[in-house]
Amino acid sequence: MQIFVKGLTGKTTTLEVEPSDTIENVKAKIQDKTGLPPDQQRLIFAGKQLEDGRTLSDYNIQKESTLHIVWR
């Protein structure tokens, strides 16, 4: 499925993911596209910070959802 990651600059990155992907895995995909290391990424969805060990489905993140990224 496709999801979007929007940064503070307003730039949006598209990712191809599975609902079973962990947040850690998603951060690795973001690094592949942007070069930003996972330890500098904070992902937010529906006002919650996403924890590395959880999956996208744990947070009810579905296709075409938009996550927000904040740099540490």
Rank of each mutant, 00 (worst) to 15 (best):
M1I: 10
M1K: 02
M1L: 06
M1T: 03
M1V: 05
M1Y: 13
Q2D: 05
Q2I: 15
Q2R: 14
Q2M: 13
Q2A: 07
Q2E: 08
I3M: 03
I3K: 00
I3T: 01
I3A: 01
I3P: 01
F4V: 05
F4Q: 04
F4T: 05
F4S: 04
F4P: 01
F4D: 02
F4W: 07
V5Q: 01
V5H: 01
V5F: 06
V5A: 04
V5T: 03
K6T: 13
K6P: 02
K6E: 08
G7M: 13
G7T: 13
L8H: 13
L8M: 12
L8K: 10
T9A: 12
T9N: 15
G10M: 09
G10C: 08
G10P: 06
G10V: 09
G10Q: 07
K11P: 11
K11N: 12
K11D: 11
K11R: 11
T12E: 08
T12Q: 07
T12P: 09
T12V: 14
T13S: 08
T13P: 02
T13R: 06
T13E: 12
T14D: 04
T14A: 10
T14I: 14
L15C: 02
L15R: 00
L15Y: 08
L15K: 00
V17H: 01
V17Y: 03
V17P: 00
V17L: 04
E18I: 11
P19H: 06
P19R: 07
S20Y: 10
S20P: 02
S20A: 09
S20H: 12
S20E: 10
S20I: 06
S20W: 14
S20M: 10
D21P: 00
D21E: 10
D21I: 05
D21N: 07
T22S: 08
T22E: 03
T22N: 04
I23D: 00
E24P: 03
E24A: 14
E24R: 14
E24Q: 11
E24L: 14
N25M: 15
N25H: 11
N25Y: 11
N25G: 08
V26H: 00
V26W: 00
V26S: 00
V26Q: 00
K27R: 06
A28F: 13
A28D: 06
A28T: 09
A28V: 10
A28L: 15
K29R: 08
K29P: 00
K29L: 09
K29F: 05
K29H: 04
K29G: 03
I30F: 08
I30W: 05
I30G: 01
Q31K: 11
Q31P: 02
Q31S: 12
Q31C: 09
D32V: 12
D32S: 13
K33T: 07
K33N: 06
K33E: 08
K33I: 13
T34I: 13
G35P: 02
G35V: 02
L36V: 13
L36F: 10
L36W: 15
L36C: 07
P37K: 11
P37R: 12
P37Q: 09
P37I: 07
P37F: 07
P38H: 10
P38L: 12
D39I: 08
D39M: 09
Q40H: 12
Q41N: 05
Q41A: 09
R42L: 15
R42W: 10
R42G: 06
R42I: 15
R42N: 11
L43W: 03
L43Q: 00
L43S: 00
L43F: 03
L43E: 00
L43G: 00
I44R: 06
I44L: 11
I44D: 04
I44G: 03
I44H: 09
F45H: 06
F45W: 09
F45C: 03
F45N: 02
F45M: 04
F45E: 01
A46S: 09
A46H: 14
A46Y: 08
A46M: 14
A46V: 06
G47H: 05
G47P: 01
G47F: 04
G47C: 05
G47L: 04
G47R: 04
K48M: 13
K48H: 12
K48A: 10
K48C: 06
K48P: 01
Q49R: 10
Q49G: 07
Q49E: 15
Q49D: 14
Q49L: 15
Q49A: 12
L50C: 03
L50K: 00
L50H: 00
L50I: 04
E51H: 08
E51C: 07
E51W: 05
D52E: 10
D52K: 04
D52C: 04
D52I: 05
D52N: 11
D52W: 03
R54P: 04
R54Y: 13
T55Y: 05
L56P: 01
L56E: 00
L56S: 00
L56Q: 00
L56C: 03
L56K: 00
L56D: 00
S57F: 08
S57I: 08
S57Y: 09
S57M: 10
D58W: 11
D58I: 02
D58T: 04
D58V: 03
D58M: 05
D58C: 03
Y59F: 03
Y59A: 02
Y59T: 01
Y59W: 02
Y59H: 03
Y59I: 02
Y59Q: 03
Y59L: 04
N60L: 06
N60P: 03
N60K: 08
N60Q: 10
N60W: 04
N60V: 04
I61W: 01
I61Y: 01
Q62M: 11
Q62I: 13
K63F: 07
K63R: 12
K63G: 13
K63E: 11
E64H: 14
E64N: 14
E64I: 03
E64T: 06
E64G: 15
S65M: 11
S65L: 03
T66Q: 05
T66I: 13
T66S: 05
T66A: 04
T66D: 03
L67T: 01
L67G: 01
L67V: 09
H68D: 09
H68Y: 14
I69A: 04
I69K: 01
V70I: 13
V70R: 09
V70T: 10
V70L: 12
V70Y: 13
W71H: 12
W71P: 12
W71K: 09
R72P: 12
R72S: 14
R72G: 12
R72E: 14
